[in-house]
Simulated scan of single mutants.
Amino acid sequence: MPFANIKIPEAALTGAQKAEIVHRVTAMFVDDFGEAARPHAMVLIEEVADGGYGRADEVFVVPEAYRAKT
């Protein structure tokens, strides 16, 4: 079973954008493994709360301008 775990900042993407990621990753699995992989493809999108991760020794918080508009 192909599996992808994608972590994104909380509130960075809309539901439609997350659905598009699921669709595209599933399509990539099908391209690589064949159509038989589609019913077994698992795409997990995890939202990480602000302050729950860091980069370059800094705790990261998503600026308001980059948050998903619902």
Rank of each mutant, 00 (worst) to 15 (best):
H23G: 01
N5T: 06
M42D: 01
A12S: 15
E35T: 13
V22H: 09
R38W: 15
V48N: 06
I45Y: 09
K7N: 02
V22M: 05
A27R: 07
E10D: 05
V22D: 03
D32A: 15
R24I: 07
Y66P: 00
Y53C: 06
A12V: 10
A56P: 00
D57M: 12
L13I: 06
A37H: 08
A56H: 02
E58G: 00
A4K: 02
N5P: 00
I8H: 06
F29D: 03
F3K: 02
A37V: 12
T70C: 09
A56G: 01
G34S: 09
R67F: 13
E46N: 09
V25D: 05
D57L: 11
G34P: 03
A12W: 04
E10K: 12
I21E: 05
M1E: 03
K18T: 04
K18F: 11
E20L: 15
R38S: 12
G15Q: 10
D57S: 14
D32F: 14
D57W: 07
H40P: 00
A65N: 04
V61L: 05
K69I: 11
I21R: 04
P63N: 10
G54F: 14
M1T: 07
K18L: 09
A65G: 06
G52E: 02
V59R: 10
P9V: 01
G52P: 00
P63H: 11
I6G: 00
D57R: 10
F60S: 03
F3Q: 05
E58K: 04
E58I: 02
F33P: 01
Y66T: 01
V61D: 01
V61W: 06
V61H: 13
V62M: 15
E10Y: 04
E35H: 09
